[in-house]
Structure formats: structure tokens, C-alpha cells
Design a protein around this nucleic acid. Structure first.
Length: 779
DNA sequence: CGTACTAGTCTTTTT
DNA sequence: GACTAGTACG
């Protein structure tokens, strides 16, 4: 009996197919990682392929790590020379060796989103871009998608002909690349783009890697963008032994440039490709798969397939609709508590998935009350916290003086009395002489324009220089401690009365531990390498399966994971699918959300619970949303409760909380607390059990018009923030604004999101404002 | 130059 | 509602 006997026929086919391109369409839970690892083993053991010639690419470090472990287990000796890594780290490794050919230094730094935003702000100021009409964010995403599609600044400029905004963007793009180059920095997209550029301009380098990577495997292939595709295409160009694994139904990264045609058109690019479908699912019950299949069937753009399992039918899917998001959270926490209490599940077996990070807070509050241990994946990345970024900026400055951004970040942190004017003067000096900012600092006494401030710069430069010389014989841990000591960073935090000073210090300690862990796990640790690893971590990478905790995360983060018990929260039209996609005129936007729903459903092994709330706070405003269309796409017989659909205003009235609904809720069977929870849990109430705000001073219900379609209900809201069905004032009416005082309504324009109201205020003059935000009152 | 307050913006999703 | 950038003031 060999290790391959445990594979099903289709899987074996995929494993044994060695030469030439293969596309494995692997449905959720169909054992694709198993196929990949077995394939690697087969290549080495049976085909005598040198492990050194194998490259396996994934998207996250976590996936790479898991693949690595499994390959090590199954292959044993020689497995360490297999190259298993993410797209980004693969490219970094290649660029560290060869980027000099493109005119960058091999010790380039990697800019994260924060850094690029700062750069962009600077550029906009210099090019006098009006950031009211053309936002930094927009420009960055324009540049990013250009890069994802391998469009260079020059090409972009050509395409921009005749379009003023695009021409401006082209200018910015060009400038942006120049700044990055000057700082010897690459952004995330550049890592891929520059590697492709390197391969295209240096045939010898390409040839080297083609020879090296004779067998290439790509996981989550549906998430590749055009640049990544080109990279793979180039690498596999010679031997064409390319095996890609993916599921078009799980393509959820379009916003990041993922090009679904990479998988849909694979056979066009590689006509000799063999296509293998894996449809047997080893993860979930048939009921769960039926639900997933039923939902995804509504998509037009996909390759037909249907998951099936030999597992039994399993339980019905649980569906609950609540009045408020608080009740929803209480239910979920309560259920998980009960499961733990009655030995049905461990905390680590449970995951709560939601559409947006903002939804985690309310769940967290409830989990704390119930005393249920949890971890939130994502949200604010550890490495983007202020104190961590400060520390890293010190390390970057020490490592690479060309990173102006890092130097500017810390030059006055902790305070050294160096202000904006001084920084500006130094920058001018640097620009005039083509120096980096840091090198200009070193010549501070030559910069006449800064006068006596030069004296403040000197100690800073001295300090950095001394860190640099210590780098020779210090360990990274010693260096870190020296920085903390010498700069007095932690000391300042200790003395500050800031509320979160304690957390910050802990985070810095955590960073020190990460430095230590890094040094322990690498043979030849270097500062540059540490910074690089840190730059490429994803949120999911830090998740530790050993901890017995409930995991809370977005649906995006959940891809590739599985749990016995899954809770999908916030299944409401307007939340999931998001308001943005519902109102978008691009129907494929909803399809992408539907794929996300498919991903969510198929995370569950045994037990799936779907919840939603009739009203919830979103962006500080109470919203009323109907049950998600995705729930309505699940056949009724699979659900233990049928979704109620609200069509009429009278139904809608019931959304509001009444004493009865509260009482009903409190005695509800699932409302109980998990045993062992703090006693105050029973009394716990969120800060605002929502009393719908009224825009109407008379406290009358607003006048709803045009309700009768679901779309109408979705757009309705009581408080400010969303478009109302109608306004209480009209043109010519006198109104009062909280800040501008009294005025006369001149005009009202009905827009897609809200009414645009023009008011001539007696004192403040004429203003155009959105009705929902203006909160005008008729007088 | 540094602090404190205010006004505006924003919400999908992330390597 | 939360966060951030910008501004006015000491």
C-alpha cells in the first residue's frame, strides 16, 4: 500500500500527471492541498525529480507554512530544498539577488500602505493636485491596478490621452515611481512587477530560474492577477510543467486585481493543458454542500461543477433573525458557550465570520461578557500600530539610510524639538544636491537655512551612526533594547498618562519577542531579512491553532480554513452583500459577493449557523436591512427557520423595538448565559439598545414612500446617514441647521444615495449638503 | 515648536 | 462612531 492509495481517482489523476500544464479545478474541501503535497512527493520519489527543481507558490505565509510542514512530513529527506513560498517572498528573494540590474540597490525597503499614503500626500502637494476631487487613496488604487495589470507609467500616460484626470494620474504615477526609486523602495505591487521586468530585460536571469524551477505549482490560482500570471507564465515558459490549483467559485480578490480569466482561460493560454475537476468534498455535510451549491448556482460567470460528499446529510442549517445586532451577538456567544458547556464543541472548533472588520466589536463585547476566549484575525495589523511602526522605522533607518520616510518618521519621535520647518529645509537641501534625506542630515552644519536647529540634528545623526556601528557586533535583540533604552521611547510611554500607554509598551515587548524568535529560527539572521519578513506578514499568519479560542474574522480571512462549527453573522442585504455592490451597476460585483458567501458556507464541517439583525449600527447610524439575498437563495428545507421577508411598511414598523419585543427576547430560549460567565452578564446591555432616532421634531414616524419592493426597504433608514424616502421640507421652506442656523431651501436634487439640498443661510451663506448629514429641521 | 481642539471623512474585502 | 488631518493658540 502506498501513500497514494488514500487518494480518490480524480486526485490520483492529478498527482500522476507530471509533464505539461495541468489545471486542477478543486472545489472547496476537495483535498487540494493533499493533492499538491502528494504530487510533490510523487515527483521526487517516483520521477526522481530533484527537490531543488520544485517551486510551490501560495498567497499567504500561513498557507506556505502549512504546505511546508506537510511536504516535510511526506517527503522527508531533501524536502528542505523545495522552494515553498508566497508570491511576494519569492519575488523578494529573486530581487534581493538581481534588482541591481534594474538600477535599485539590493537592500531595497518594502513600503506598506501607510508609507505609500505618505508618499502620495507629498506628491499631491508638490504637483498641486486638488485632493478634494482626486483623493490620495484613489490615486493609489489607480496606480495599484495599473501595476497589477503590468501597465507602466509611460503606457499609462499614452492611454490617458485626452482625459485630463487620467493625465494627472499618469503624472502622479510617474512621480510616485521616481520617489520610490529614489528612496530605494518598492511597494507590494512592485515586488511582482519588478520581478517580471527583471525577467523580461535579463534573459540570462530568466533562464537561470527557468532551469531551476522545472516543476511549478500554484495554489489558489483563482486569486492571481495579471502580473502574477505573467510571472508564472515566464517561469514556466521553458519546461511548461505548470500545475495550478484553484476554484473559480472562490475568487474573491477582484478588488486586489485578481483576474478570474486567468483560471477561466487557462486552456486558451496552455492549449495542451489537462483539466481535472475535484468535486468530492471531504469537509462538510451534504446539507451544507447543498446550500453552497444552491447559492453559487446563481452566478453566471463560472465553470459548472457541483460538490458532493459521502458524509451524511447532517443537521439542518440554523437560521435566526434578530431585532438588533446586540441580540445577534448575544445569541452567537450564548450558543458557543452552551456547546462548550455541554461538551459538544471546544472553543477552537468555532468560528464567527462576517463581512467587514467593523462587525467584530459588538461580538467581542459580548464574548467578553460571557467569558468566552476569542481571537480576532485582522483589523488593525500588529505591524501597522504606531509604536511598532516607530520601532521599525528606527530599524529601517539603521539598516538603509536611503529610506527617507523612515527617517522622517522618527527624527522627532520621541520629541527632540525638530519641527516641520527644519525638516522642510533639510529636504530642500537634499533635493538641491541629490542627496537622501539622511545624508543631508549628516551635513546639517552646512545647511545655512536652518540656523541653530542644526544643533538639534547632530545628536540624532550621532545616535543613528552609533547604532549602525554597533550592528557589527550586536545581536538584533541587543540592538532593539539599545534603541528602546537610548531613545527613551518606552520611558516616555511609562510617564505619559495616555490611556493605552500600557498596551503600547506590551506591543513593543511583543516586537522584541518577535525579534528573538526570528533570531532563534534563522541560521544567519540579519536586520534586512527581519525587516523584510515583517513587511510581508498577513493577518492570518499569526493565527495559532493551538489556542483554545473562538476565532472571529472576515470572510476573506477565512478562505482556506475549516471549522466544525461556523457562524455567519450579519447576513443582510446592505451588509452582505454590501451596499456598495448592491447599488453598483456592475452585476459581477454581486457575483463576487456571492462567491464570498460560498466560501463562508463551505468553511463549515458539521454545523452552520446563519444569523442576521433587522437593525444595526453602521458608520454610527442605525440601518434597517432585509435578510440577505444569499439566505433567500438557500432552499427552505435546508433551514430550520425560514427567513421572514419584509415588504410592507407595517412589517417595517415591527423592526422598531417595543417593550414586548424586548421581553420576548429576554425570555427567548437561546437568550441564556453560558455557565461560568460573570454574574453581571445577565444585566449586561450594550450602551445603546437602539432607540431609533427621529429626524422629525414632532416625533412622528417618518413618511415612507415607495416601500413595496425589497430594494426600497434596503434603502430605508430612520436616522441620518442613509437616504430617506422623503424629506419633511421642500424648496422655499425655512429650515434650521445645527451649525449654520436658519436659512431658506433653494433647491433639492434627488441623487442615487441621498438628496442634495441647497440652502441659503441667513448668516453662513449658500451651502450644498446631503440631507442625511445636514439634519435640517423645518421651522 | 508643541498642544488641543475641531472639522471632515469614511467603510467593503488585503498581499 | 472612530479616526485623522488641519488649524488655532500658547
Amino acid at each position: 500500500m502506498s501513500i497514494y492509495d488514500t487518494l480518490n481517482e480524480r486526485q490520483q489523476e492529478a498527482v500522476y500527471h507530471m509533464d505539461g500544464p495541468v489545471l486542477i479545478l478543486a472545489g472547496a474541501g476537495s483535498g487540494k492541498t493533499r493533492v499538491l503535497t502528494h504530487r510533490i512527493a510523487y515527483l521526487i520519489e517516483q520521477k526522481r525529480v530533484n527537490p531543488w527543481n520544485i517551486l510551490a507558490i501560495t498567497f499567504t505565509n500561513k498557507a506556505a507554512g502549512e504546505m511546508r510542514d506537510r511536504v516535510d512530513d511526506i517527503v522527508g529527506f531533501g524536502s528542505e530544498s523545495i522552494w515553498v513560498s508566497t508570491f511576494h517572498s519569492t519575488c523578494v528573494r529573486i530581487l534581493r539577488r538581481y534588482i541591481e540590474r534594474l538600477g535599485y540597490g539590493n537592500n531595497f525597503t518594502i513600503y506598506d500602505t501607510d508609507d505609500t499614503k505618505n508618499i502620495m500626500k507629498d506628491i499631491c502637494k508638490r504637483l498641486q493636485i486638488d485632493t478634494k476631487t482626486l483623493k490620495e487613496r484613489t490615486l493609489l488604487s489607480v496606480i495599484s491596478s495599473a501595476k497589477d495589470s503590468l501597465i507602466s507609467p509611460v503606457e499609462y500616460e499614452l492611454k490617458a490621452m485626452g482625459d485630463y484626470t487620467k493625465q494627472r494620474a499618469a503624472q502622479v504615477y510617474k512621480e510616485y515611481q521616481e520617489v520610490l526609486h529614489k528612496n530605494n523602495a518598492l511597494d507590494f505591487d512592485d515586488l511582482i512587477v519588478k520581478t517580471v521586468e527583471l525577467f523580461k530585460t535579463c534573459p540570462d536571469v530568466l533562464d537561470y530560474y527557468q532551469e531551476r524551477f522545472r516543476y511549478i505549482m500554484v495554489d489558489e490560482y483563482q486569486d492571481t492577477n495579471t502580473a502574477q500570471f505573467e510571472l508564472i507564465h515566464l517561469l514556466a515558459g521553458k519546461y511548461r510543467n505548470l500545475c495550478v490549483v484553484g476554484d473559480d467559485d472562490q475568487s474573491i480578490y477582484k478588488f486586489r486585481g485578481a483576474n478570474i480569466s486567468n483560471i477561466l482561460d487557462f486552456e486558451k493560454v496552455f492549449p495542451e493543458a489537462e483539466v481535472i475537476k475535484l468535486e468530492q468534498n471531504y469537509r462538510s455535510t451534504q446539507t451544507i454542500l447543498d446550500a453552497a451549491n444552491a447559492v453559487i448556482r446563481n452566478n453566471v460567470e463560472r465553470k459548472e461543477k457541483a460538490l458532493w460528499t459521502e458524509k451524511g446529510e447532517g443537521d439542518q442549517i440554523h437560521f435566526r433573525q434578530f431585532d438588533t445586532a446586540y441580540e445577534e451577538a448575544e445569541f452567537i456567544a450564548g450558543e458557543i458557550g452552551k456547546k462548550k458547556k455541554y461538551g459538544k464543541a471546544e472553543f477552537r472548533d468555532c468560528a464567527v465570520l462576517y463581512r467587514t472588520n467593523a462587525q467584530s466589536r459588538i461580538l467581542e463585547e459580548r464574548f467578553i461578557m460571557e467569558g468566552i476566549p476569542y481571537d480576532v484575525v485582522g483589523g488593525v495589523n500588529f505591524y501597522s500600530r504606531r509604536e511598532i511602526k516607530d520601532m521599525l522605522a528606527y530599524l529601517k533607518t539603521i539598516d538603509n539610510g536611503r529610506d527617507d520616510l523612515a527617517v522622517k518618521r522618527i527624527i522627532n519621535v520621541p520629541r527632540r524639538g525638530i519641527g516641520a520647518t527644519t525638516i522642510l529645509r533639510v529636504q530642500e537641501y537634499a533635493d538641491a544636491r541629490g542627496l537622501s534625506f539622511y545624508d543631508a542630515l549628516r551635513e546639517a552644519d552646512q545647511i545655512l537655512s536652518i540656523g541653530k536647529s542644526a544643533a538639534k540634528l547632530k545628536p540624532f545623526v550621532m545616535m543613528i551612526q552609533s547604532f549602525r556601528s554597533k550592528l557589527e557586533y550586536y545581536s538584533l535583540q541587543e540592538l532593539m533594547n539599545d534603541i528602546i533604552e537610548t531613545t527613551g521611547y518606552v520611558k516616555e510611554l511609562q510617564e505619559s498618562d495616555e490611556e493605552d500607554a500600557e498596551d503600547r509598551i506590551q506591543n513593543i515587548d511583543e516586537l522584541v519577542s518577535k525579534v528573538v524568535a526570528y533570531e532563534d529560527s534563522h541560521d544567519d539572521p540579519s536586520l534586512s531579512e527581519f525587516l523584510e519578513e515583517v513587511a510581508l506578514v498577513a493577518d492570518i499568519d499569526g493565527v495559532d491553532a493551538e489556542d483554545n479560542r473562538v476565532l472571529l474574522m472576515t470572510l476573506h480571512s477565512a478562505k482556506g480554513l475549516e471549522f466544525p462549527h461556523v457562524y455567519l453573522a450579519g447576513l443582510e442585504d446592505g451588509v452582505f452583500p454590501s451596499y456598495m455592490t448592491i447599488t453598483s451597476d456592475d452585476p459581477s460585483a454581486v457575483e463576487e459577493e456571492r462567491r464570498l458567501a460560498y466560501v463562508g458556507i463551505t468553511r463549515a464541517k458539521e454545523d452552520l449557523t446563519i444569523t442576521c439583525a433587522k437593525q444595526r449600527m453602521l458608520r454610527g447610524e442605525t440601518q434597517y436591512n432585509p435578510v440577505s439575498r444569499f439566505v433567500r437563495e438557500v432552499p427552505g428545507e435546508l433551514l430550520d427557520n425560514k427567513p421572514q421577508i419584509f415588504k410592507k411598511k407595517t412589517d417595517f414598523e415591527e423592526y422598531r423595538e417595543t417593550p414586548e419585543s424586548r421581553a420576548r427576547f429576554q425570555t427567548a430560549p437561546y437568550g441564556g448565559n453560558y455557565a461560568g460567565a460573570p454574574s453581571q452578564a445577565a444585566d449586561w446591555r450594550p450602551k445603546a439598545v437602539v432607540k431609533p432616532k427621529r429626524t422629525d421634531p414632532e416625533n412622528k414616524p417618518f413618511i415612507a414612500q415607495g416601500i413595496g419592493s425589497l430594494a426600497g426597504v434596503a434603502g430605508l433608514s430612520k436616522g441620518a446617514g442613509t437616504k430617506q424616502a422623503s424629506l419633511e421640507y421642500g424648496i422655499g421652506d425655512r429650515v434650521r441647521h445645527i451649525k449654520y442656523g436658519e436659512g431658506t431651501v433653494l433647491n433639492i436634487v434627488d441623487g442615487p444615495r441621498d438628496y442634495q439640498v441647497t440652502v441659503l443661510f441667513d448668516k453662513a451663506g449658500q451651502k450644498i449638503m446631503y440631507a442625511a448629514f445636514a439634519k435640517l429641521k423645518k421651522i
